[in-house]
Design a protein around this nucleic acid. Structure first.
Length: 221
DNA sequence: GCGACAG
DNA sequence: ATCTTGTCGC
């Protein structure tokens, strides 16, 4: 997979903020996807040795039948600490390593974490999407920023996620009676379309199959 | 200044 | 993220 943009990885928070501020206006939150979606991918991370070693895993599934067609993993020293709001600097380097190994190019990538539902509108899904110029969706298991009204218990219902008067994402119930997920546009996809694909990638569990499979790959060494 | 805080 | 078994509830 080709990397369209690359920048130096920051050593300080000030540098990281500068990168986020520079990229925040480049994300596209409109649908700019292939005509037909044939493959979807999930990306997830795992760590070992006190977090000093990062594992990134990519699972490419056929769509809409969700069968595994390719997987890839990468392992490298962790080079940035976990700081809320700066997750991408910690995780993207290993993710790019794993993506470089993939031969079957997915049409959409579902990322673990936020897309534009971020203080500077550049969560990991948006940041990754920009670097590789591919459609990405942010699928987070917990809230980073924003407020929302209670979401009905049934699968498929959702409420807008609001921050500073803007709709930055959706709080989506992917399974009846289970905690919702926080969905946002990453890059080259609209919120309604993102919600649609997350639901179409979800079968009987809370998490989409893409991230469930990438999750297993990343945590099993 | 006081909390909140993706993985 | 990760350390970790059984247990409560539909």
């Amino acid at each position: 997979m080709k990397i369209y943009q690359q920048h130096d990885w920051p050593q300080t928070l000030e540098e990281a903020i500068a990168i986020q501020e520079k990229l925040r206006n480049q994300t596209i939150t409109e649908d700019k996807l292939p005509e037909t979606i044939k493959y979807v991918a999930g990306v997830d991370m795992g760590f070992e040795a006190d977090g000093t070693i990062s594992h990134a895993a990519v699972a490419v599934l056929s769509f809409p039948d969700l069968q595994i067609v390719e997987t890839a993993v990468a392992r490298r020293p962790t080079s940035f600490p976990y700081i809320p709001g700066f997750l991408s600097f910690r995780e993207i380097p290993a993710v790019l390593d794993a993506l470089e190994k993939v031969r079957i190019l997915p049409d959409i990538i579902l990322c673990d974490g936020q897309g534009i539902a971020h203080p500077r509108r550049l969560g990991i899904a948006s940041h990754l999407g920009l670097l590789i110029d591919m459609p990405t969706i942010g699928v987070a298991k917990s809230l980073l920023i924003g407020k929302y009204d209670e979401v009905p218990e049934t699968k498929g219902s959702w409420q807008p996620l609001i921050h500073q008067g803007e709709i930055i994402g959706a709080v989506l119930r992917t399974r009846t009676g289970v905690k919702p997920l926080y969905i946002s546009s990453g890059h080259r996809i609209s919120l309604p379309t993102a919600i649609d694909y997350v639901l179409r990638c979800t079968t009987k569990y809370r998490l989409p199959e893409t991230t469930r499979i990438a999750d297993k790959l990343a945590s099993s060494r």
